[in-house]
Simulated assay, not measured.
Amino acid sequence: MTSSVPWQERLSAGTEAVQEEVIRWYQETPHGQAYVPDMVWGTFQTEAYATVILGQVVDFLGVPNDVPAGVARRMQRQQVLYDGEHRYDVVLGEQALYTNIGGPEVMVEQIDRILRDIDQPSLTLGIIPAAAPVNMLPAHGFNLHGNEVHLELVTSSVNVTEQSELNLYRDAFRRLSDAALYEGEAKEILSKARSFWSGARHG
């Protein structure tokens, strides 16, 4: 089954309530998977990066502006990376490190955060190089939580629970993971992006 809720309806009371819902998803899912092609995974975002993202959401959708409260909840959800009870496999597109969210200062801080946590035992992080051959394109971002897939479209939030579709998403994630680089090679990509933004900061 696929269900869709318009963002303007889902965020009618602001961003905080939705962040609380996401916290529940993460707490209830021992092993999650996420593919994020062009921005940083929400559970990795710094406070400054998340503030820009949620501010853009509020501006675009015209929903109540409770960004500080929503950001605080997003920071709270990150505790699942450190509690020893959860595991996440995450694949980012290299573009995620270059999409300009908040300018060079915010981006340097954000990449430093990823470099700090990339070796967490709760995390397997892969990055697909911009020119890498990928046997699964085009692909939008998605999150796999147990027996559910969550998608964020421009206009709505979508949940997929149909088993045949879940199987396809799992296969898609496997193919995307196969195209990604990990550990030292991922750190090289991160360091290259950090140098880019550091140069932009001082340029």
Rank of each mutant, 00 (worst) to 15 (best):
S3W: 05
S4F: 02
S4V: 12
V5T: 13
W7N: 00
W7P: 01
Q8H: 09
L11Y: 05
A13C: 07
A13M: 11
T15Y: 11
V18F: 13
E20M: 10
Q27W: 12
E28T: 15
A34M: 11
Y35N: 10
D38M: 04
T51A: 14
V52F: 05
V52L: 05
I53P: 04
I53A: 15
I53L: 12
D59F: 09
L61S: 09
L61A: 02
V63P: 06
N65S: 09
D66S: 06
P68K: 03
R74N: 06
Q76P: 01
Q76E: 15
Q76M: 07
V90Q: 08
Q95G: 09
Q95Y: 07
A96N: 00
Y98G: 02
T99E: 08
N100D: 15
I101M: 08
I101G: 00
G103Q: 09
P104V: 07
P104C: 06
E105Q: 12
E105A: 15
E109M: 05
Q110D: 02
R113H: 14
L115T: 10
I118F: 03
L123N: 09
P129N: 04
L137A: 15
F142P: 01
L144H: 14
H145S: 07
E148N: 08
V154L: 12
S156M: 01
E162C: 03
E162N: 09
S164C: 04
E165F: 11
L166G: 08
Y169C: 04
F173I: 08
F173M: 04
R174I: 09
S177Y: 03
D178K: 08
D178S: 12
L181A: 04
A186I: 11
E188R: 15
I189M: 04
S191V: 05
K192T: 05
F196L: 01
W197P: 00
G199W: 06
G199L: 07
A200G: 02
